[in-house]
């Protein structure tokens, strides 16, 4: 044993540790190069937000316009509309996305049959793994004027509704279907927190005569509070992400008023209307605000809950 450890601080391992370092660096480089090309280079592309970018002229040949694009964007009523829609939808999704999984997790915790619990979990996690292309297709078909929902409404003797042609309905549907897709998966983190509750606490409460409802209120809920705080603060960084994939697959021009968001606006402006500079300017505005919010949310999360990712 002694000789072994003595040897490992000798000259041979020194050589080895140099080659070891080299190996580690070499392992990193392919990935670093790819990241550089696909994450760093596009950042330089952001300069076209300050240009009147014309693809044929390239970045070097296009005219610099300073902040003109930003001034133009903030003077467009559409920009304020999409900003409002984005905030409305994102905040609604986040609030519901905390409350519903929380209630679901608490109630699932009351289910005593282990088997049934597993069946429920298997089913509710599933939608998370399906794409919005698939789910958009399913929901649009169900909600169309000849779809199953309107058939049920008609059977109840009411007038059919053109859901996706009505701004308020469309917005509610966007928020609800997002909750539908994600609530099960969102509950996992709460269920994990519930498993760490000491069962003796329930027993003690029961001996003290607390009803099951009071036990939930005084044992289960307090145990979940730190997790809720953590999720809520980490959500803060996503306040400008209202869900591009979902809305892109479900919206139509009739409901731009209520469900057109920054990302869909950028997509149409940049890649459909080919206004590269204006689209990039909106995207840059979003990135900067999001970055500030993400940093803020991590600082807050660390302060409140001691959470660290790295």
């Amino acid at each position: 044993m002694m000789t072994n450890s003595n040897r490992s601080s000798g000259s041979l391992p020194k050589k080895r540790s140099n080659s070891e370092r080299l190996t580690y660096n070499l392992l990193m480089w392919p990935g670093v190069i790819l990241l550089f090309i696909f994450s760093i280079v596009p950042l330089f592309g952001l300069v076209i937000a300050f240009q009147n970018y014309i693809p044929a002229k390239g970045i070097a040949g296009s005219e610099w316009v300073g902040l003109d694009n930003f001034i133009l964007i903030f003077s467009l009523p559409d920009s304020w509309r999409v900003l409002g829609n984005t905030l409305y939808i994102a905040i609604a999704k986040m609030s519901i996305g905390i409350v519903v999984p929380l209630i679901f997790a608490i109630m699932l915790n009351e289910v005593s049959s282990k088997r049934y619990k597993q069946v429920v979990q298997t089913v509710v996690y599933m939608p998370y793994f399906l794409s919005w292309v698939i789910l958009g297709g399913i929901f649009l078909s169900m909600l169309s004027i000849d779809g199953v929902i309107n058939r049920i409404i008609e059977m109840l003797g009411e007038e059919p509704v053109m859901f996706m042609a009505d701004g308020k309905w469309a917005r509610a549907i966007i928020i609800l279907t997002d909750c539908w897709k994600n609530f099960g998966y969102g509950a996992i983190i709460y269920l994990a927190a519930l498993t760490s509750i000491d069962l003796d606490l329930y027993e003690a409460a029961a001996i003290d005569g607390a009803s099951r409802f009071r036990q939930i209120l005084h044992v289960t809920v307090p145990a979940l509070v730190p997790t809720v705080v953590l999720v809520a603060t980490l959500n803060l960084g996503g306040v400008l992400n209202a869900g591009f994939d979902q809305i892109y697959n479900m919206y139509n021009p009739l409901v731009y008023d209520t469900i057109d968001i920054i990302d869909t606006f950028v997509y149409r402006m940049g890649l459909v209307d080919m206004q590269f500079s204006l689209g990039t300017a909106v995207g840059l505005f979003k990135s900067v605000v999001s970055f500030v919010l993400i940093v803020l949310s991590y600082v807050l999360a660390k302060k409140f809950t001691g959470y660290r990712i790295f």
């Binding site: 670093v32 990241l35 280079v41 950042l43 592309g45 952001l46 076209i48 940049g270 990135s287």
Partner: peptide, 22 residues
């Protein structure tokens, strides 16, 4: 150094238009 590089790429993105042009 590598770690900070990775975190940097996670925090900042050029968005879809610079990506498309790239």
């Amino acid at each position: 150094i590598y770690m900070w590089f990775l975190i940097f790429t996670m925090l900042f993105s050029g968005g879809i238009i610079p990506m498309y042009l790239l």
